[in-house]
Design a protein around this nucleic acid. Structure first.
Lengths: 347, 347
DNA sequence: AACTTAAGCTTAAACGTTTAAACAAACAAG
DNA sequence: CTTGTTTGTTTAAACGTTTAAGCTTAAGTT
């Protein structure tokens, strides 16, 4: 119905040039030596007329959209949804708008999203990079577009990143399982070369290798596809048990793997922690409701989200700034699923 | 580093006007009668030079940003996160970009987000409106900005909306509890006048009133604040039990209420379904892992997301189109938490 | 009185597009 | 050979801002 009010409209009703209006509404009266009274008049009429600046026009002129893209694997995954919320809140503090997008761990989709968002002139990106998306990240760097990687990064690629200490967290978690008396620990992870996953595996492997309590040092890792079904995860677990029938503990590398794994274990009627102890990465409401509340690795999502935004915004305002690489410690929340079991202590 | 390539750059290298380049790259060669060969040259050089259209400039000119806002209560709530993902996917099909934002059920935040997104010239909104945000919605309508309400709507406000059949779903769920032998059914809901909540309460009340099996028709509703803690929900449940010690079933109005309620019930050592049967609204991974898997009302998130996007986009392209109001049926997923219990049948 | 400075405001170009309108050349028709 | 039509292309204004530079008038300095 009503046409939108522009700076021109205000200028017209007040009877001044658009320049003056622009100066006043951007609080540049001092620099532009605008008269006190007329400034007030402009401000008042702007309010009266219900003026809303057109950010699109502003962006075109200034070359800054005050927007950035957040590309994750899947916004419906609670891990990313929580991260996204923290990013949103922190961005708002700096008057930035975030555009979320889900790449489904797929390099092609990722490239597509980067293209779309670049065309929309986002000022930068926070990306949880998919496998084989290294080139895309390099291309962004080459084009001098600020980015911060999150959750994962690429070895040998000098970028900003914010991750958790995957290696140490895994090492610690698996050590905890060993100390709780478990002697044959399996791990279910994703089949990928992304560092976060490799680090989690390394942590597992080293914990087993290093631990004096353990005689049998043969690792038991099963990797599945990112889009593995519950059945496939179940199949993986079954294989681990075949490989070593004495397996008495499982370490899951992510929340989704854990959920699928637990359902499979239920179906196969393994009891936690008596038949298998469990420790896993990430949180889930579900972990609280499992009959044996899960011991899990709590990632510092709030800090990660905040830090990523801060680094990105610093990088946007100062493109020459040096890369910041942050690793924030996770916390092992110990509960029943990894409790020391008498039966095991005797073994 | 490298300056971005514009249509002007292409025009220069090819040796034509920018108009021609624009026509070709927008596939308007036919209407603009562009020569076949030169068109190909333009296309090729565009690719060679790595041209990426500046959507900001495009938007300014055309007045369409091909972007819309999705305002929900909290993107980290799985209900909204899932909805958001479905909206994202559907929007992509129409080459629309979505900007998500969380209003925390707070009218002030909601207004703030609407302002920000309006300034960013979004073409429309999908909104799960907060309480007391009716004015904001009316203002958008008055300004002729397309909107689709989702999850809730306002009685007496003629808008597009997509919701589930809250009344019927509740009625059905509570009837199911009665048929399973429960005779004193309590409900925990949010303290709000938003229709979806009122409808869920009405469904509960009517189911109790209508049912022939029931003698005691005194309703047992406890409402809590949107940001109620687990303890406050627990306190509410305790009060219901005080009010009627014979309460043998609980109906929770949302996923978050359920999670908090279940934790409280666990703490108070009520057994499900023997002490209390449970039925709740929404899904949660956690419901699968509760020792007595929950009976819940599954909302049609995929259809809701899709439909909302479709209606919005239709409304954007044809602002005069009549309002579409859709209610999609939910499904009651019956499991153990509401199982018929022998003890109860005998009462 | 002649000049400088300051204060207050306007002009106009620019950002990267789109698109109606104008133009030019080639061809066809009478 | 005029006139009209078609084909291919350019011109230029516009979208809503920002901002450097220019222009007036008034007030201070010599």
């Amino acid at each position: 119905m009503k046409k939108k009010v522009s700076i021109k409209d205000i200028a017209q009703t007040v009877g001044v040039s658009t320049a003056l209006v622009s100066y006043v509404l951007n609080n540049k009266e001092k620099e532009a030596r605008v008269g006190k009274e007329i400034a007030q008049v402009i401000r008042d009429t702007a309010v009266e007329m219900g003026y809303q600046p057109n950010q699109i026009a502003k962006s075109l002129k200034t070359g800054k959209s005050h927007t950035f893209g957040l590309i994750v694997a899947d916004i419906s995954n609670p891990f990313f949804a929580n991260l996204a919320r923290n990013v949103e809140d922190e961005a708002k503090k700096f008057n930035y708008t975030v555009i979320f997008a889900s790449a489904d761990e797929n390099a092609e989709k990722s490239q597509n999203l980067i293209n779309i968002l670049t065309e929309r002139q986002v000022d930068g990106f926070i990306i949880a990079p998919a496998e084989n998306s290294q080139d895309q990240i390099e291309a962004l760097l080459k084009n001098n577009i600020p980015i911060v990687l999150i959750d994962r990064y690429f070895k040998g690629l000098d970028t900003n990143y914010v991750v958790t200490n995957n290696y140490e967290a895994s090492y610690h978690a698996v050590s905890h399982l060993i100390e709780a008396g478990n002697t044959n620990i399996g791990m279910v992870a994703y089949k990928t070369d992304l560092v976060h996953m490799l680090d989690r595996k390394r942590g597992y492997l080293d914990a087993i290798k290093d631990n004096k309590l353990l005689k049998a040092k043969t690792p038991l890792i099963k990797t599945v596809d990112f889009n593995a079904t519950q059945e496939e995860v179940g199949e993986g677990i079954r294989e681990l048990f075949t490989q070593n029938p004495a397996m008495d503990a499982l370490f899951f590398a992510t929340n989704t793997l854990t959920l699928k794994g637990l359902k499979s274990l239920n179906k196969m009627e393994y009891k936690v922690p008596d038949d298998v102890a469990i420790v896993c990465f990430d949180e889930s409401e579900a972990f609280d409701f499992f009959y044996s509340p899960l011991t899990y690795i709590e990632q510092p999502l709030l800090e990660m989200g905040k830090k990523a935004v801060q680094i990105l915004i610093k990088n946007i305002s100062d493109k020459k700034s040096i890369n910041t690489q942050v690793s924030i410690a996770s916390k092992l929340i110990v509960r029943q699923s990894s409790a020391m079991v008498v039966k095991k202590k005797l073994v």
